[in-house]
Design a protein around this nucleic acid. Structure first.
Lengths: 345, 345
DNA sequence: CTGTTAGCGCATTCAC
DNA sequence: GTGAATGCGCTAACAG
């Protein structure tokens, strides 16, 4: 009973394959009697049309490929969750690929995704702008094959497609302003994603907020942290913690690590140093103290991306020009920063 | 240039489709000259064989379906990570489905997965034993279609397949013993997965450890927590916190929530009440105090499941009887429990 | 009402 | 060396 196909059923009833097909699809062309017989048999034996065959026939797969840099990062999981929701509602499955922050793997994955296994792709690329200028071929292949593409979060201007981005300038501005408003004026940034353009944008917002208050920006305020770098070493080499009273960190896990480090060195948060992080996940909520965070609304980003992609796939906005949607962030104020009132005294 | 197929290429060179196919697959039957010409053209235009067509031809998809109850749960993400690793190494893709703890959705998903889109399935079922006895059909269909199936974590004896389980009895025992050894003898359990058999096993281990010390077990010690239940209300109705000195919680997020609650009621952890949780994720490491946890080694569970499934798919252990692998847990001791030394004085 | 034919894209016989 | 024919499982157009 391994393979139950139209053919098998046809043989069983001594009719033709197309008759069975029509019967199962409830065509009016087939006699009621025969239809009932066939459908009953099909139901009993759990007949299901082979999706692969249908995919070949319809030239679609009702599947979308999702490519993220790291599945252990809560932000991306939130996005994935949003995508999953929408995909499910609209009748699509998702095939998830993690690049583990490796450009090589990203190329391999995109190559694979070009081969007809998916109807469209949602990606947050691992490639920084420098790398992309040399290594953009894997994207162009997708575009050339007319496979709809939506980039989110880590995007690039070098590729023309729909995009869903966070308003990172505003996010950096908002966080910095909160520092300033609560009396923290000696600030630093820790950037664990130095290759990505989003870091640059957040720093842009940081600068803007400083400028408004007439505080000069100095590039020493920004500490880049490579994947391999030791947090403690890097920080002790680059920052004079005693003079700081606010640190902005660009991802969630690094945020709590920085807080651990500060505590172990005897600093009190937020009394001595305030901390604001990015990505409002569970870690921030239950860390001690609970962390003031920029929420990028990952789930909403996922939903937006998925809806846009599926619209594209289904040709709903066939002629519409590519669109970049900007998702506003929120500052979720908790106890790792001083309160406004506290500061007033 | 949308669709570049063998046919297109054949037309371009005025040869037959099969010639092109052979040329591209480097068959010795084709003249060197023509082969070079065709292959060069194919490369330049990024020809890629259509995977869907190949799937239909080979009757496989090199894809495995992964079904988990909740993608926002760190344990499952860890497992997913492990599966992804192995799948990638062995040339498979994964299609991820989340049931959101809904049996109805699980049925739908399994139904979908039966239709030939995957070569095998890895699942942690949402169904408790009671539900399964009424609702096992969706699994039997998979088995009947000879689609290899591996269950992990939340498994059931009612289905015959390969399984990867956590040694939950031992885990419950280990955690309880740690309480007892650090002087906590008045214990309680909070169980947010009351439908699942794994809760029962952990409680089993709990009882065993109590018995060894001659402490009677009372079913009031176990508090079940439904998805909709309010944590604070349920606890205040069921437990007398002042008399307790140890709480064992069966998942990670509930663990930190319980700790938050205890703190807000003025209890010190671990001085007044010790806490041990399940799933050793980031939350536990960075909570305050860092939490003593049972680690189930989710990533390893994922790797083991994926390897077993792919072995099955590729017929490497065709005749081998179904196997249940038990993964040992570890107790990761941190500061939410008293230290042994402390206790000695 | 039912069956025949054709084709989705590909690889694999088997003729020539 | 090259090409025609076959079939994976299915649907749709067209005959009967």
């Amino acid at each position: 009973m391994n393979k139950l196909t139209l053919k098998t059923i046809a043989a069983h009833f001594n009719v033709s394959v197309s008759t069975v097909s029509k019967a199962i699809n409830d065509s009016h062309e087939i006699s009621e009697e025969l239809k009932v017989k066939i459908r009953k048999f099909a139901k009993q034996n759990h007949y299901k049309p082979n999706r692969v065959a249908l995919n070949l026939l319809n030239r679609n797969t009702k599947t979308i490929g999702v490519v993220i840099p790291n599945i252990l990062n809560y932000f991306f999981v939130q996005v994935l969750f949003g995508i999953e929701q929408v995909a499910d509602e609209r009748g699509y499955s998702i095939i998830t690929c993690s690049t583990n922050e490796s450009l090589g793997k990203e190329v391999k994955i995109l190559d694979f995704l070009c081969s007809g296994s998916v109807d469209g792709v949602i990606i947050s690329t691992v490639a920084g702008e420098a790398q992309l200028s040399e290594h953009i071929a894997h994207f162009e292949e997708l575009l050339q094959k007319q496979i709809p593409l939506v980039m989110f979060d880590r995007v690039t201007e070098m590729i023309e497609c729909d995009k869903v981005v966070v308003d990172d300038i505003e996010a950096g501005y908002k966080a910095t302003k909160h520092f300033l408003e609560t009396g923290c004026r000696s600030l630093a940034i820790i950037n664990p994603i130095p290759n990505s353009s989003i870091g640059r944008l957040r720093i842009e917002g940081f600068k803007r907020a400083l400028k408004e208050q007439g505080i000069p920006f100095d590039s020493d305020m920004v500490v880049s942290l490579g994947v391999e770098d030791d947090l403690e070493l890097t920080i002790s080499l680059s920052l004079n913690l005693k003079e700081l009273n606010g640190i902005l960190v660009f991802d969630e896990i690094t945020t709590v690590k920085v807080m651990d480090l500060l505590r172990s060195k005897g600093f009190l948060i937020p009394k001595d140093i305030s901390v604001i992080g990015f990505t409002n996940g569970e870690l921030s909520r239950y860390a001690s103290p609970p962390v003031t965070m920029i929420s990028q609304h990952g789930r909403f980003i996922g939903e937006t991306s998925a809806n846009k992609l599926i619209d594209r796939i289904e040709g709903k906005d066939d002629k519409a020009k590519f669109e970049t949607k900007t998702i506003k962030t929120s500052l979720v104020v908790r106890q790792s920063t001083l309160s406004m009132e506290q500061q007033d005294f």
